[in-house]
Structure formats: C-alpha cells, structure tokens
Design a protein around this nucleic acid. Sequence first.
DNA 1: TTGTATGCGTTATCAA
DNA 2: TTGATAACGCATACAA
Lengths: 381, 381
Amino acid sequence: MGDAAMVPDRARRVTVYDVAARAGVSIATVSFAFRRPDEVRAATREAVLTAARELGYAPSGSARGLVSRRTGSLGLHSFDMLIERPQDEEAPEGAAVDADLDLSADTLPWAALGDDVHSDPLAYPLYVDEIQRGFELEARRRGHNVLLSSGGRSTADVADTAGRVDGLAVFPSIVARESLAHITQTIPVVLFSSPIASADGYHRVLVDNVQGMQDLVAHLVQDHQITDLAFVGGPAAADYAERFAGMQSAMRRFGLTPASEPLDSSLLGDTRPLARVRELAIAGALPRALICASDQLALFTFEILRSVGSRVPEDVVVTGFDGVLASRLSVPRLTTVRQPMEAMGRVAAQLLANAAGAPPQMPRTLRLGTQLRIGQSCGCP
Amino acid sequence: MGDAAMVPDRARRVTVYDVAARAGVSIATVSFAFRRPDEVRAATREAVLTAARELGYAPSGSARGLVSRRTGSLGLHSFDMLIERPQDEEAPEGAAVDADLDLSADTLPWAALGDDVHSDPLAYPLYVDEIQRGFELEARRRGHNVLLSSGGRSTADVADTAGRVDGLAVFPSIVARESLAHITQTIPVVLFSSPIASADGYHRVLVDNVQGMQDLVAHLVQDHQITDLAFVGGPAAADYAERFAGMQSAMRRFGLTPASEPLDSSLLGDTRPLARVRELAIAGALPRALICASDQLALFTFEILRSVGSRVPEDVVVTGFDGVLASRLSVPRLTTVRQPMEAMGRVAAQLLANAAGAPPQMPRTLRLGTQLRIGQSCGCP
DNA sequence: TTGTATGCGTTATCAA
DNA sequence: TTGATAACGCATACAA
C-alpha cells in the first residue's frame, strides 16, 4: 500500500544510529557523548545530547548489559507460595485479585477495585516486606537496581532470573536449594534463613535463633517461673527447627526436660493448622506456655484459644518469633523475639554487591543478633 | 606466564557455547532445547539440559532482551526524595542507615544493626509501599518482573531506567515531567497522582480527589454541622491542589464560602512544617476543622496540637487523606479518605503490560474512586 | 531434527 | 577529536 518509509516507525526503539544520523555524527561519538563527555568537543556533545533528547533516546539496557557483562541489578526472588496473601483463600468479595481490572472506562468506582484486602492491619506487613525494604535501600545505596522476581520451583524459572541480575537473594523455600544449586557458579546467591548445609555455594544470612530462644526461655523461666513449655510449629519449615532446638537446649540449661517433639507441628499453610492446639485447649490440657515458631503462628494461636474460651496470658502464655508489626498491635501485645529484618535485607544486598562481578568466593554465613521484645502475652503487666 | 587456557575461567559466565560444547551439539540446539523443547529429540534435550545444569548455565537476560527487543520487566521509579524515610533526619542512634554494615565478622550483634528504625509503627507503611505492592502483584500476574529504580531528577538517570524496562511507572515529583518528557515516545509511561496536563504522552493513574473531598466535607457539614473548615497543606505538591479545590467546591455547594488560600501551606519536607497551625493553636484561633491534604500531615497535626494542649476532636476536628495504615492506628482514629492504593499499582501495571511493545497509544488518564473512612477525629463516637 | 549464519544495540579498540 | 568495526550471547530464518 502506501509508502510507510516516510513515517517514523515508533514501534522500533530509538537507537544510537538514529541519534547519530540526526546529529550528523557516528555512533561511536554518540556513545562517547554519554559515557565520556569530556573526550568530545563541547559543540558535538551538545548536538548529540539535543538529538537524543528530541528523539527520546534511552540506551538499551540489554545491549549495555551484553557488552559490559553486568546488568546493574540485584535480584530478590520469591517462590510463588510466599507471594500469595493469606486472604486470597477466602473468596474475595469485590474484584478478585487474580482477574483483570476492567480498564475500558476512564473512571473506576471504588466498588470495582476490591480494596478490602488490607482491611486487616494485622495481616500487613509480613516478614518478607521488611527484608525487602532493607534490600532495596542497600542496593540503591550501591548503585544497583532491584529486580523483584518470582516463579515456580523449576530450575528454568530460577535460571531465568539469575540471567538478569548480578547477584540474587532468595527467600527460603524447601525446594529452593536444589533448583539453585548450580547457579552459584555464575552469580553470587544469598539464601535468607536457610539452615546451614555442609558446603554448598550459597551465602547465607540468618539470625541467631538459638540465642533468641535462649533469651525468651530465660525470661519465661526466670521472671515468670514457668517450667511447662511446649513448642508450636513444624520443624519442616526453614529455621523453625533451629528455634525448636534452641528452646530445647535453653530448657536443659535451666534443668528442665524438653519434649522431643513439638506439641503441634502445624505450618500455616496446612489445611487445618493448629488442630492439636485446639484439641488440647478444649480438653484443658495445654501446658502453661506455648512457644510458637513465628509471630503469625502465635497470632493464629490467639484466635484458636479465643475461640475455645481460653485467655492469654491468664490460662495460657503464648510467645512468638520475628517481631513483625502485627505482633505489636495485637491484644495482648505479643512477647516475641525481634529479628532485625531490615538489616537482613541490607546485609544480603551488601554481600551481593561486593561479590558481583568477581569470581566465586568462599561462601559466607552471617548470623545476626536478635532482641527479646516483651509484651503482655507472657504475663508481664 | 602459565597457560591460563586450561583453567576454566569462571569469571566469565557460562554461555550457550559452553553448554553446546559439553553436550556435543550446536548452539542453536541448546537454544531450542530451552525455548521449543518439543522440537528437539528427547535424548538430545536431556543431554543439553544436563550439561546446562552441570555448568550452572543461566541464559543471559541481556542477550535475550537484545534480540527479543523486550526486557520482560516493568519499572517502578522513585525520585530520591521519596525514598528517604522521615526518621533519617533525626540522627539515628545505632548504625547509620547510610553507612556500610561491618561484615568482617560472621556474627553481627543486635546493637550493630540499627534496627530502631521501625520502632514507630505509625511511620510504616507509607503511601508508596502500598502502591508498589499492587504493582508487583499485577506485573507478576502478567509475567513481568519488577525493576525498582531510583535516581536523581536528571534526564540521564531516568533514561537509564527507561532503557531497562518495557514500561515505566513513576511516582509523582515536581521535576518528573520534564525529565521524562521524551521517553514516552519509546516506552509507555504511567504517572501516579500527577495533575493533568494539556496533552503530553503520559498515561495517568490518579484518584478522584474532588469526589473524595466532596464526601468528606459533606460528612462534616451535614453530620457534624461544621461550617468553619480550613485546609492544611501546600498546593505545590502533586495532587494536593486538587484536594484543596475539591474542598472549595464542596463548601460552595453547601452555601459556605471557602478561603481562597490554605490555612497553612506546609509540606512535610519543610524545615519547620505547620508553623502557622501551631501559632493559631496557641492563640486559640483555629477554625473548627482542619482538612489536611494527607494522612501524614494530619498525624503530624495531631502532634502539634497535642504539644500545645489542644484536643482532637473536642477543640479541633482534624481529617486526613490517603487512608494509610497509620491512620487506622492513631488515637483518635483518623477520619480520612481512603485511596485504593493497591488498585492504583495494579492499574498502572496493567496499563503498561498492555501497552508494552506496541507503538505509542493515545495516553489514558484513569481516575479511581475513593471511600470515606470515618474515625473519631471528626467527632464521631 | 540439527547446524550455519545473521542481527539485535552497545561499548571499546584501533585508525584516521 | 571522531569514525569504522569487532565483540558481547542469544534467537531464529534458512540450509542441510
């Protein structure tokens, strides 16, 4: 049909060639004008910059990354399961989160937006959010962008992400370790809160769960004279096992004999979590204190107990671990062990930024301190 | 010196060539094995995949992006000012946020981590966090990664980001519009909460500030019989001006005569914000109701009033705008207009995902509905 | 089904 | 100071 050659084809992105043509110089000069401005005559530079501006030129990150062999980004990968929000299961009333919003009209009434999601402040923010925040902060400080990715557990998904970043931090996942196993040869990888393995190639950032539990147990035993403690949470999860072990050793230190198994091995993802706790609560057979593996588990325990008429802390003492925002807003306020989550993110980013580009280094495991945070759920006034 | 050719050079990333060599096939076959697995004989595919796994191969995102002409990422750009957290000004006690963490030892005690930052739950999360959350969610749904970037206001910083993504969403900034002006020719750009301009190339996602103010003023006038309303907040900021205008028109609708200027034109970044409010409070000359341009401004107003002994809502009614989490935790709870922030993020991502790759389209301005959220700060029980 | 060859847009090396 | 040109690692059209 008509000759389209006269119409600037804006489906193609503007390149150095376009800028060079417009400014009447070579592509090398265009590149120089941006990367080494003072090695180019002022007038030439201006001409190039002007042409670039007029054309809306943005240098291709892909091309730059290809030649420089670095992307300038640090990745933060979550496996899908972590992304789904707890509320998603309960059928949302308004617009479903997994449906497209209808953008055909220019005005979207409130009712079409499904904003109920955050109606419960206790559900927000979670563990990952705070770590992510620290990671962003530190990456930015060091001149890196942050690439947020997620995906299934397949090696391909992870490798895809790995190919886009100079370093990768990964939230814990039971399956993470295998699918990542080999990419540590390629880029530095940090695992958060992942139990230490013999000698794989991962860097690790985790908290001192054992010391944290020690502090918590010491408070309960010494300040509240509680000797009857039981653990809630399945040791299958990331570092819950460490916390359980920490509790056991702390109890022994006080001359107590810990159970060899958790009282209830639930994980929050289970179909009917904390069933055992509920049973025992109904039977009036709970121990004096429930040491929960995480804040979320502890807050859910609150609900279970409330539903069967048990009071915290009068009938049962409940503690958590993490120190998420929600734990400070609950009634009673949760006694818990605060993880320095922002610092975890920052440490990870710093580790990656340092290691990026260099040949694989001796993987490091950094362990961060925690702090006991006393609320009322332990019986303190 | 020695012949380094024999030593696998692990500073170089593994490429298709390496995999091809190891698997005894051509590079095309390697590519096929990943991208069109069923057009490759099973045995060959296995050989390739195995070689890839053993080598820790991760396909270069840069190279893929170069050939496919798309990065697979959507960008979320913040100008620096927005990233700095309010607390940063007040000299942090622990480790400074802008210093490196000391990673020389493998154990980092709590005291070295400066975790005090989040000690005030009211400071978290902010406006941007919630939008970001929605953006992530939607981008992921559509198979895009999210690139978080930040930078100064220079065209170069923004162009750099623009070159790395298929579409870009930008938080409001007074300077944003000019530095971005030309890149809309290259990739789709969405501006959040940015006042409508004649006909630039930006898509816009904003809320119906006018209607929101209408609802708020109606509540104060009709349900509380308040006629004496004044606006707090500088119209220099993004959509604060719209909110002020919305308040004015709402007042007129009720037969009231609004002031032509805000009572106090502070912005939170000012050196001594809300000085005028404080003066008037001390003089006992405040109007019955202060309509603040944002929740953060309103919560800060709480503090000012408390410091001079004025009570909310008995002496002065205070309202906000945004509906951030903090507004629900304050005492008294803030009466405010909730913005559907997660939806804003989702809409932006959806807009970008749809527009990515296509030639520039007619820019759209989408306006989302708000919801009045009544607390006690207006005098409701 | 697999291999060869080309181009994606940049940076950098070397000449001019 | 500027221009021509060769990688960078991948996907794909085309051959075999």
